[in-house]
Amino acid sequence: MHLIYPAVLAVLLFSIGLYGVLARRNAILVLMSVELMLNAVNINLVAFDRWLGDGLHTGQALTLFTITIAAAEIGLGLAIVLLVYRNRGSSDVDRLTDLADPGRPLPEQRAPGGTAAGDEKAEATA
C-alpha cells in the first residue's frame, strides 16, 4: 500500500480535529475533537510502524500508550467539565473568560432562560 494513504488520512483527520477544537463551543465537543486529533496521530504511528517494521514495534506500543493516555485524559477532562458546569451552569468554552481583561462584555447569552436554568441546576447539584 502506498504510505501516502494513511499519512494523508491522518493529516486530514488531524486538521478536522483542529477545526473542532478551535471552533466548537461546548467543552465536551472540544474533547471529542481532541480525540479525533489523537486518533490521527495513532493512524500515523501504526502506519509508520508497519513501514519501518522495527523489532521493538515502537509504533504499536506508542499507539497503545496514546490510547491509554487518551482514556485518562477524557476521564479527567469530563470531571473538570462537569465541575465547571456544576459551578457555572454552562460548559461553553468561550464563556470561561475569568482571566480576561476585565471590563470586556461577555458574549451574548446562550439561549433565553438557558443560563437561569443552568444556575438552578448548578444549585441543585451543588
Binding site: S15, V21, A23
Partner: peptide, 21 residues
Amino acid sequence: DADSENRWVALGVALAAAGTL
C-alpha cells in the same frame, strides 16, 4: 450556537494546517 465566533479563524487555521501538512 454549537460553534463559537472563532469558526472562521478556526477554519482558516485548519485549512492552512491541512494544506501545509
